[in-house]
Design a binder for these strands. Structure first.
Lengths: 143, 143
DNA sequence: TACAAACCCTGTACCTACTACGGAGTCAAG
DNA sequence: CTTGACTCCGTAGTAGGTACAGGGTTTGTA
């Protein structure tokens, strides 16, 4: 299987596959006589694994750790739990912060709906007043 | 005001202030005889504005656009609306995707609570089976 | 058979928004 | 007079790719 075929099969971009190889996530495959990379079923499986972990937004370093577990079973399963727990905690923290951000932007957006021509833009006014340390609709008193 | 004082006053790191200057978000300030940057009230205000926009997670390029509006009032307010709407849309899209991710990770996490010693880790088994294209607890059938 | 399109190779630069140096000059306190 | 904190500039590094540039190879078609 050439790199383009592997790319087709997994939905991972050719450049990204080479990048994973360079990063050590994928083992360097054998080469054909012309220097082209030659992939087999094991590469396909490993790349699918990586892609699945990335879909869970795990950093590449953690994907690497999981791959080590796969390669060398019998490790402490608690480590895997912790890894997933850590990711879950990161995702939940980000979720909370994004929810706050969404409220802030919504409130700010409500300040202006583009049907004023004489008085200045409410959004801009809000943002500027925040620069003075005043309470703003998006962040309340102070920043 | 020296750069360290501006940093204290705004909570923006010294290096970041220099970075903003290099990026064109902050005008180059006057220099003291010794070459140190000399900031005034207008810089403080502008930096606070930038910081506020960044707290809304607006990309620097969009902060720049907003600054252009501030510098040159009378522009089309609809553009500002669109800018905020665009950000809101990005945030909401990310929110939706993070919520799905949270569900996936929770489900995956439930597969293993580290009190098994004989049978292999359920999380790892899930991730591996996903590499075979089988249905997985996190993403359902296929990826 | 000839030619062009599509593929593959390596290496490097670019992206965001910073952060972290390295090496040097400057300033205030003790 | 030294020590530490501050400032300067320029470069490199971060994550996770993406996008060339400049070359070789293979494949399809006329």
């Amino acid at each position: 299987m050439k790199i383009g075929e592997l790319s087709q099969a997994t939905g991972v971009d050719v450049e990204t596959i080479r990048y994973y190889e360079k990063s050590g996530l994928l083992p360097a495959p054998a080469r054909q006589a012309n220097g082209y990379r030659e992939y087999g079923a094991s590469h396909l499986e490993r790349l699918a694994f990586v892609r699945h972990c990335r879909a869970l937004d795990l950093p590449l370093a953690e994907v690497q750790r999981l791959l080590d577990f796969v390669d060398q079973p019998g490790g402490d399963c608690g480590d895997i739990d912790q890894l997933i727990d850590g990711q879950l905690a990161r995702v939940r923290a980000r979720l909370t912060s994004l929810q706050a951000l969404e409220r802030q932007l919504s409130t700010l957006r409500a300040r202006c709906d583009s049907r004023h021509e004489l008085h200045p833009c409410g959004i801009l006014a809000e943002l500027v007043s925040a620069a003075h340390g005043e309470a703003c609709v998006c962040h309340g008193a102070g920043l």
